[in-house]
Amino acid sequence: MGGIATNVEIQIQKLTDRGLELDWGLEKTKEILLDIGYYRLGFYWNPFEIDKNHNFKKGTKFSDVVKLYYLDVDLKNILNKAINRIEINLRTQLIYSVSNKYPEYPTWFANKKVMYPNFVDDFPKYYTTKFKENNKPIKKHHANYPNDIYAPAWKTLEFLSFGSIYTMYNALRNEDLKIQIANYYGVKKVKVFLNYFKTIIFIRNICAHSGLLFDCNTPKEIETTPLIQFNNNNRHSLDSSIKVILYFLEIISTDRKIKIEQEIIDLFKSHEDNVLIISIITKKIGYVKK
């Protein structure tokens, strides 16, 4: 058994025994623990612990933990807006580019002349009965055209996961077409484009599934190009991932990129009076103030 459930009073006693200051008072602390949860907040007080017994750095306040939590939440919300715009644009470019290259194949994603055989053979795993039932335009298409195995690309791709769109792009047989799509975003090499695409998906999944964002590092190193300058050449940091996101966003909409970037700057600036939080922003996130 992984542990025994405890009530909020015992949880608070544990935190104070480890040296956490309840600077917002007992009742407010209870309210927050019952709102966010002891387990979830635990991810956000870990950076303030100094030993294996989970004792806190001297002077660590409960408010520091909560502020870090909301920094993470707010940053996820900001990046979600940016990534949503990028995701829609990437879908559109894939649909437009491939559908116009192969107008005779409206379901080109299931055609072995267009896609690598393994992808085509595996596609029924994506296009399940549940997929058709859960997406009304797809369901309506099959009601109108019962003999169609699949709906055309401009319908189908709108409802596939972002990760599936990445897999589909990677499975295109025509390398020139892949380069054409990458070039739309100013990227010359397919390898680099795939790396950036994967980086955006990695951050998107953290944001979408309430993961821990502030200290995340990409599993693979982000590719270097003259397009993006990374702070301290750290190509795994969250800040480097944010730079990739902002780069793609600027290709799509300069105004949107400026707005999102300013929201991030303002968010970090709002914590500049807190030494502990600023240390996390610079050391864990990798952000360098301009």
Rank of each mutant, 00 (worst) to 15 (best):
D273Q: 09
I242Q: 07
S97Y: 11
R173M: 13
A82M: 06
N144G: 01
A208T: 04
N274C: 09
R85A: 06
V288E: 06
I206Q: 02
N195G: 07
N183F: 06
A82H: 03
I278Q: 13
A5W: 05
P152E: 01
S210E: 04
E87F: 10
K139F: 15
G25S: 06
K189C: 03
V120N: 09
T107M: 08
I95M: 12
S240D: 02
T156M: 09
D122R: 13
I32H: 00
L20V: 05
L157I: 13
D72V: 11
D148G: 06
T6Q: 05
K155P: 00
Y105I: 15
N7V: 09
A110D: 01
P146S: 05
S99H: 07
Y184W: 09
I83C: 02
T254F: 11
Y127W: 14
K191G: 08
E158M: 12
P117V: 12
M115R: 07
I10E: 11
L90R: 02
S237C: 13
L246V: 08
N7C: 09
N134R: 15
L267A: 07
I242F: 13
I201N: 00
N118R: 14
P219F: 15
K139Y: 15
V192F: 04
K220V: 11
I242R: 09
E272T: 05
N274D: 08
F109M: 06
D239Q: 14
V114D: 00
S97C: 09
T218N: 14
F268P: 01
T16V: 14
N134W: 13
I201F: 03
Q229T: 15
I260D: 00
K289Q: 08
F131P: 12
T199Q: 02
P152D: 01
